[in-house]
């Protein structure tokens, strides 16, 4: 059996990877959504200028 410190480290890593992973993945999706939104807005503005 491993030492307590080693085990605590494995448990902490597991929970850390899960929580940080979730945060990073969610953040990347939300950021891409915002990016697409901004691009659509920019295209809309450009279309407005072109029309004028």
């Amino acid at each position: 059996m491993e030492t307590t410190g080693r085990i605590a480290c494995h448990v902490a890593l597991s929970y850390g990877v899960t929580v940080v992973g979730l945060a990073l993945y969610a953040w990347s999706v939300l950021r891409r959504i915002r990016g697409e939104g901004e691009k659509i807005d920019a295209l809309g503005r450009q279309a407005g200028t072109d029309a004028r």
């Binding site: 491993e2 494995h10 890593l13 597991s14 990877v17 992973g21």
Partner: peptide, 13 residues
């Protein structure tokens, strides 16, 4: 990916 990372972390000890 979470399963494949936490699995070995559990299995080693």
């Amino acid at each position: 990916a979470i399963v494949l990372i936490t699995g070995p972390l559990w299995a080693k000890p």
